[in-house]
Design a protein around this nucleic acid. Structure first.
Length: 472
DNA sequence: TGAAATGTTGGGGCG
DNA sequence: ACGCCCCAACATTTC
């Protein structure tokens, strides 16, 4: 028999209690709930997620943390493995629960899965992973946006009149004792990013207390903590993007009009909108996961070079800034955004290797790895995407290093071989005289690799290769 | 959310 | 004193 007062809160990418519409809907009026997370073999085995150990560990840590938070309020997390349709059907039957509440997710797989389930089970989808549902934001002619600036203008216009209340976490929860689940598997999480909602909230508060007011100037500085570093938390909904937006918006409102800090907070909000933009792009153009958005750039003749690809992956290209970024990725499952742009430009332009290689390496190692944002970023860097960087915009790793890591701090943190290299050579160690190499304990070609390509030559080659596809 | 090549200008050295 | 050249420094164009 159906107990209409019992509902499933199906958790997907919303591992939090605060500002969570499906949770509140399921647990309204003190109803008992079944907080359910399903380990979906189809996702776990998919090309984007099958090798992503660090991200899976972060997810599992997040589930443990969520379980602890639920228990403090009288509930607990139920973990099951299997096809969501079957698992949900079974639990609905076992428990007599009447409804399944979930937050809308817009990736192609999620949309397909949810459509199938909605046809057979009582699934209620609510406010999703984005602040504005992608279907709700279209150009005047009814077509989706493909350029960021007009998208962000329309996005702001649409969020302005929204009620900016944050849903508080339910104070008391209960979960029926007879619902069985599996233990949450162990996973070695990184130390840099502590999984869970309270860690996310701490980080947001820390960021809003100071760094956000200098965001415009310090976001690109590689050594500073100028960015919020919240991406892994948004990725799994350990923090509500909408709540972050509301808090940032309130910071602007409580500041004096046109105060300099407003510009900085606006800049940060702009990054939240980039996230929304790529969610929207993937929703409206799901084929970007398979091929280039821009038809004219689908025919770049990529080089196949396993050795150079490996050098890039392992951070041994001989270009310090590139290597620092790639080693940061391996070291903590995250990379500074400026470094992401640099290493992407290097793979795609300097090495002329297919951006898909970069996309999948990032998906394997990033704990914030998300198909929409990651694909959007790579297509941007490769110049093949919506509103992408022009093909002739090629980053110079030496100049980028001098500009965004002027003291070499970031480089020395991640490339210890260069620790004692004098500042004037730290971005271009191959220019270091042999005597200095000995003094610094860093012999080029022995202790630290010689550059695997000459940037000036590689740049010319890239321009030629791209030019061919643009002309032809 | 670049960088390199090319063009322009203006000050100072020097015949 | 004058004009020529050199070359920073900055601006514009091109990839």
């Amino acid at each position: 028999m159906i107990k209409s007062d019992l509902a499933i809160w199906w958790i997907r990418r919303d591992l939090r209690l605060q500002d969570n519409p499906p949770l509140c809907a399921a647990a309204g009026q003190g109803r008992a709930i079944i907080p359910l997370f399903i380990l979906d073999p189809e996702i776990l085995r998919s090309r984007y997620h099958s090798d992503a150990g660090a991200r899976r560990a972060f997810l599992l840590g997040g589930l443990r943390s969520l379980d602890a938070d639920l228990r403090k309020r009288g509930g607990r997390l139920i973990l099951r493995e299997g096809r969501p349709l079957e698992v949900l059907g079974r639990i609905l039957q076992e428990t007599g629960a009447g409804l399944v509440y979930a937050a809308e997710d817009y990736s192609p797989y999620s949309l397909r899965r949810d459509a199938e389930i909605a046809g057979q089970l009582p699934l209620r989808l609510m406010q999703g992973v984005s602040i504005i549902p992608p279907a709700a934001l279209l150009k005047a002619d009814g077509r989706p946006y493909t350029v960021f600036t007009p998208f962000s203008r329309a996005w702001k216009a649409q969020t302005l009149p929204l009620s900016l209340d944050i849903l508080s976490a339910p104070e008391k929860l209960s979960t029926p004792p007879d619902v069985g689940g599996e233990d949450i598997p162990d996973g070695a999480a990184t130390e840099t990013f502590v999984p869970g909602e309270s860690a996310a909230r701490n980080r947001l508060e820390l960021f809003m207390r100071g760094p956000v007011f200098h965001y415009a100037e310090s976001r690109d500085q590689l050594a500073a903590v100028g960015t919020s570093q919240l991406s892994p938390y948004f990725r799994f909904g350990m923090l509500s993007a909408r709540e972050a937006f509301v808090i940032a918006q309130n910071a602007i409102r409580s500041a004096e009009e046109n105060a300099p800090e407003c510009r900085n907070v606006e800049k940060w909000i702009r990054e939240l909108i980039w996230r929304e933009f790529y969610i929207s792009v993937l929703f409206h153009f799901p084929h970007v996961l398979g091929k280039e958005f821009s038809p004219t750039l689908r025919r770049v003749k990529w080089r196949k070079d396993a050795a150079q690809l490996r050098s890039w992956q392992q951070g041994s290209t001989g270009y310090p800034l590139v290597d620092a970024g790639m080693r940061e990725l391996l070291g903590c499952g995250w990379m500074h955004n400026r470094a992401r742009m640099m290493v992407a430009s290097f793979l795609v332009k300097d090495l002329l290797i297919d951006w898909h290689e970069g996309e999948s390496w990032f998906m394997r190692h990033l704990i914030d790895g998300d198909p929409a944002a990651n694909n959007g970023g790579w297509q941007w860097a490769a110049g093949t995407g919506t509103d992408a960087t022009p093909y002739f915009r090629i980053f110079n790793p030496v100049l980028q290093g001098r500009r965004f890591d002027p003291k070499g701090t970031y480089i020395r943190t991640w490339v210890p071989e260069l620790e004692r290299v004098p500042l004037r050579y730290v971005h271009s160690p191959w220019e270091m005289p042999v005597s200095d190499q000995w003094k610094a304990g860093c012999r080029i070609g022995k202790d630290y690799p010689a550059p695997i390509v000459d940037h000036a030559q590689a740049r010319e080659r890239a321009l030629e290769a791209y030019q061919l596809t643009v002309d032809g």
